[in-house]
Design a protein around this nucleic acid. Structure first.
Lengths: 365, 365
DNA sequence: CCTGTTCTGCGTCAATATGGAGTTATGGAG
DNA sequence: CTCCATAACTCCATATTGACGCAGAACAGG
């Protein structure tokens, strides 16, 4: 709901601080006059706000522009390097970490393989080492990381604990947010991998202009993430989108059937060359995906359906039959596109989640 | 997203007006001091706000309380009779209209039967007559009705047009919001019936403390409404929740099977007395419902699932097997309750929708 | 060194909110 | 009937915030 707190003068300052800061981040570097124009605030107000932000360390004055007419204007820039956030995918066979500054610019990636059968503590340790190596490699001291978010397959509750994992051995019950925070001595967050992927897609991918999005992650395992009104919808237990577990949907066996004797990539490759059996299998797989996807699409009626995960790389070979089957099943057929990202989607979404937390809690926006 | 407009002093006034007004409506009648205490605002501010609201006609001063110590306090009350809203269900075989004041207190009901095979213009005309009779009967002049909302089975797009109706002949393509507004010369709104029912349930029924709710309407036809974050989620085309159309779910035939040779009420009655065949049929029906409901529950992971519609009157005879089947199908099993309302649910939800519109647009909250 | 341009610094004004000092209206006790 | 306790009212002073306007400062170019 809407917050119902009395509004005094400090509320105005808060609102205008947020406004100014977001304008400054859009502009990169800007003069007071320019910020005043784009925000609709008076020059004076912008200056006061910027002074305060400067004292808090989020804004710095940069040397004036040269070679322009008139008195040189003071210029200000957002200190994106005032802090950092880290997003990490704790996957079935790899850990992917991304370190980003406060503008969300990723300045370092780090990736480590991890055995599919690794025990929870081994997987966590690998995630820890990968995350620390990511920060160290970029030359960022650990205390400068303000938030860490982790994504993993399985259901993650709102405290950041894996409450159910089917694919990873012993993973059920593992607390992920806690350790992630302790690695850097900051806030730790955790969420389901598909949920984070849809965040990434909405942030920087093909779903930027959609407000309701269903993201279907199709790979070794199938999962889904849902965005409602531009915000991640996780549900009471973080289980929103877990349609794959419904027997009638059959996502469980869909992948198994697809890759019976060869790798998924090979099947898609063969289908592309027109191999009858491969085409049939891809079509069958697309149909299985479509049943689950349509259940989500019928429930949510989204603006956009994004197909992600390893199998999304197959492109139209898979998208085309998926669209066809969806059109048969849905009353209101959404647009269907492939994910903009590859393996980075989950870590990138984790960065966004961490950034959301920092912007809300630390910058107080 | 969050609005990003510059905040000046008038924003404060707006915030505090909303705060004061909502407090006053909660309190019914209150003194300045009391309002100051509950809102956290100063007495002075509350007075200024109330003066302004008084001029606009929304607040009236009432005689002071007698027999209390100290100087009598001026008392104020919200003028719930400053305007009215009307909610109407345009159903398959009946029209139900409800007229409510600005507090949402329903002051008049009106109901008319309508043949299932009625042509669209006949149905609309019946709805018009019923709505006008409802207002006339309560002695409320038509110009005092500020908003009208209509609910109907089928998919209703955001312009208030029925974009797809399976149950009502010729109903597809009919504009409902437009005519509804013209009946009273005010704003007209329209939405799907299950969507409105979930609003009613969240407003005054059993879902008041839940923020994510799935409402399953089980009657002559099955439909669903979804509440996310306390707000109605309708989707891009208003088709959110239309899971029943998915063949694998089979809501289409579920009802047909249940009532093969007798009325639904009779089957439930028989099941209650232990009739083997009836129990089996109810169980089969519950399973069908559960498949669709679980698809929604898996997609949304709601706090609560409400069963409404005519069949909800059966109570535990239907709820118990529904719960059982849901528990088998869902990863995260929501609480399941029967709707608090009977036939009034949709009209009541329509009242809420109209009231939301009035509070947003007219009162400027 | 003058001129045109643009930004800065500062003073003024308006809207809103808060808090306190003193005043007023009422019920009840003597 | 008088006085007192009580609770609310009135009024004013003050603080915060933002908008606006004007004089002056800084710089480029001639």
């Amino acid at each position: 709901m809407t917050e119902l707190r009395p509004g005094d003068a400090s509320l105005l300052r808060k609102v205008n601080t947020r406004l100014t800061l977001s304008a400054l981040r859009r502009e990169g570097v800007a003069t007071l006059t320019r910020l005043g124009r784009v925000t609709g605030l008076s020059r004076q107000t912008v200056e006061t706000v910027l002074d305060e932000l400067g004292e808090r360390g989020y804004v710095r004055e940069v040397p004036p522009d040269e070679g322009v007419m008139g008195r040189p204007a003071r210029r200000f820039g957002f200190r994106a390097d005032a802090g950092y956030v880290l997003g990490v995918e704790v996957g079935g066979d790899a850990i992917v970490a991304a370190l980003a500054d406060l503008n969300g610019e990723v300045i370092a990636w780090e990736r480590t393989g991890v055995p599919g059968g690794a025990a929870p503590h081994e997987r966590l340790e690998a995630a820890r080492r990968t995350s620390l190596a990511c920060a160290d490699g970029a030359g960022v001291a650990r205390r400068r990381v303000w938030a860490v978010a982790a994504g993993t397959p399985g259901i993650v509750d709102r405290t950041g604990r894996v409450s159910l994992s089917i694919t990873l051995p012993g993973w059920t019950g593992v607390d992920l947010a806690g350790p992630a925070g302790r690695w850097f001595g900051c806030t730790g967050l955790a969420a389901n991998d598909a949920n984070l992927a849809v965040l990434a897609e909405h942030w920087r991918g093909g779903a930027q202009h959609a407000s309701d999005v269903v993201y279907v992650l199709a790979g070794h395992r199938a999962g889904a993430g849902i965005l409602i009104g531009g915000r991640l919808h996780q549900g009471r237990n973080g289980a929103a989108g877990e349609i794959g577990t419904l027997r009638q949907v059959g996502w469980e066996d869909a992948t198994r059937e697809l890759v019976k004797e060869s790798s998924a990539a090979e099947v898609f490759e063969a289908a592309l060359t027109g191999d009858r059996d491969a085409v049939r299998r891809v079509d069958r797989y697309a149909e299985r995906l479509a049943i689950g996807a349509s259940a989500l699409a019928l429930a949510v009626d989204p603006d956009l359906l994004v197909l992600g995960g390893g199998h999304a790389r197959a492109g139209d070979v898979l998208l085309e039959p998926l669209r066809r089957h969806l059109a048969e099943l849905c009353v209101s057929v959404p647009e269907v596109v492939a994910s903009t990202f590859g393996d980075e989607a989950v870590a990138l979404g984790a960065v966004r989640l961490a950034l959301d937390h920092v912007e809300r809690e630390v910058l107080g926006l």
